[in-house]
Design a protein around this nucleic acid. Structure first.
Length: 155
RNA sequence: GCAGCCGGACGGUCUGCCGCUGGCGACUCUACGGGGUCGAAAGAGGAAAGUCCGGGCAGCACAGGGCAUCCCACUUCCUAAUGUAGAAGCAGUCCGCGAGGGUUGAGUAAUGCAGAAGAAAAUAACAACUGCCUUCGGGCAGAAAUGGUGAGAAGGUGAGGUAAGAGCUCACCAGCGGCGCGGUGACGUGUCGGCUGUGCAUCUUGGGAGCUGCAAGUUCAUGUAAACCACCCGACAGAGGGUAGCCCGUCCGAGUUGACGAAGGUCUGAGCAGCAAUGCAACAGGGCCGGGGCUCAUGCGGUGGAGGGUAGAACGCUUGAGCCAUGGGGCGACUCAUGGAGUAGAUAAAUGGCAGACGCGCGCUUCGGUGCGUACAGAACCCGGCUUACAGACCGACUGCUUUC
RNA sequence: GGAAGUAUGGGUGAGCGGUUGAAACCAGCACACUGCUAACGUGCCGAGCCGUAAGGUUCCGAAGGUUCGAAUCCUUCUGCUUCCG
């Protein structure tokens, strides 16, 4: 299969409940310079069974494996133009590198919620964002495997 | 040629690959709500910004009048627009050699205030001046010419006049009023007249103002939902509402429309609630009772309180006081007629990424090229105006300096 | 998106257009007290610039304006805070 480079609106994280949970604390976060990444596992729930029926024409049909949000604080980046540009760069970098996470999540029984928060004052180039995005996604997928092994102990 | 000033109009272009958003068409899945794939077109501004004004639009409130409160104020015009809005002007003042630019602008009859300084801040006499009296200390009277203070000192300058002086008189100038002329008008100008403090507030005159804002608001879904708690209430009347600024008379008045009417009434049943059957519809219903009275508190209604729920969805939402062209009117803002083109609508929020070519500016240059840069800034209901930010570049009118004829 | 408020010494925070460049508290410096320190008490500097000093001058977020006179009134910007489902 060719690497899926689409990024539809359904992959956006828009639920207020999930977002509040994500930022409430206790979730893993890491810094990759222009960004800080917060992520959380979301268990597949009962309504996923109905999803399974739809899911036969590809995972695009049902709920996506990963949903993300991008946030750029107004305090760091003053102008709306620059905030929009920062979000676009992050989204584009995620779009091109999302296959890393999707491969890691193949066959797992949970989904992921990710938040990218900008922690820089100056606009970086696309190359810088792309590079750190790749690194960060690889690190996350490594961590997932570690957590999967250690999860039964902690719970 | 250089520098400037005003007005208008613009603010990058093209190609390839990978994406995003809403609609359209085809195919497809479906729990019939909608989802997926493919296709060809569309997808930020002159300021989208600030939110400083004005409107449209929406909800709530509201018979009417007066007072109070708040806002506005040169003139004429334009507009949907009532505005420290816009256009064209007028007057004062400041800046500029100038083209021009900034800013202020109803009235002053009455009342009040004006720190410090100064004799005195408006019925003016401190010093000096003049006259008279004198016990030589000074006193009385005249007088706004002199003094310094101050933002402002009793119109200014000069001459005459006088005991000394004074618009007391005259000439010129500034201001005010009457008349003539010009202008729609603010005002300008000529002439005549009397002789005239500054600022602020109250005040006077004229005009205007209900409140909240698309997170307005509407519909659907979810919810035991016509859910729960408290209070009010049914005509011998007045709790209350209009009216949480006050007053006057007046009106409504216990879910509700219209007509007659002023009666503890009559007629209609158009209305309201509910999926429906049906229920309610200006003193309904039940119990006791011969009747009145008394008691109970179910349903409907009103007000307040305390809660629950949402990945909530849809509408509002983009055709509008809109845009462009030509012609007519106007100095202009603008307006009239005719014709034409016409999908941005997101909602943790689309309009992007990469690569290359061109254009423009600056630097280097062996004039072949080459390096760097390419502004301010991102729709959120929609318009009009203002303000602020802005690389570059175009058109037109005008000004100053310089050169040539 | 819409609607309000606020900015004054190093910090908090009063302030009628007129003695205000600044009330008050904290902080700082000096003195006094103490064996030494803290606290209490007294006084001073209050922020820049010029000056040895006396003193002069500029400042109430920034820039314009009104006024004889502005921290205060008006306009435009800047920062911060709050509210509206």
């Amino acid at each position: 299969m060719i690497v899926n480079c689409q990024f539809k609106k359904s992959e956006r994280l828009t639920s207020q409940l999930v977002i509040e949970k994500l930022f409430a604390g206790g979730n893993a976060s890491m810094a990759a310079f222009p960004l800080r990444i917060v992520f959380m596992k979301v268990e597949k729930e009962g309504n996923d069974e109905s999803e399974g029926n739809c899911g036969k024409n590809g995972n695009l049909g049902g709920k996506p494996l990963v949903s993300i949000l991008v946030s750029v604080p107004k305090k760091r980046v003053r102008h709306a133009v620059d905030r929009n540009r920062m979000k676009r760069l992050v989204r584009e970098a995620y779009r091109l590198n999302k296959y890393i996470l999707w491969e890691a999540l193949e066959g797992k029984d949970y989904r992921l919620a990710l938040a990218f928060v900008c922690i820089t004052d100056t606009l970086p180039t696309f190359y810088a964002v792309n590079k750190s995005m790749k690194k960060a996604l690889i690190r996350i997928s490594e961590k997932l495997d570690v957590n999967a092994n250690s999860n039964p102990d902690s719970q």
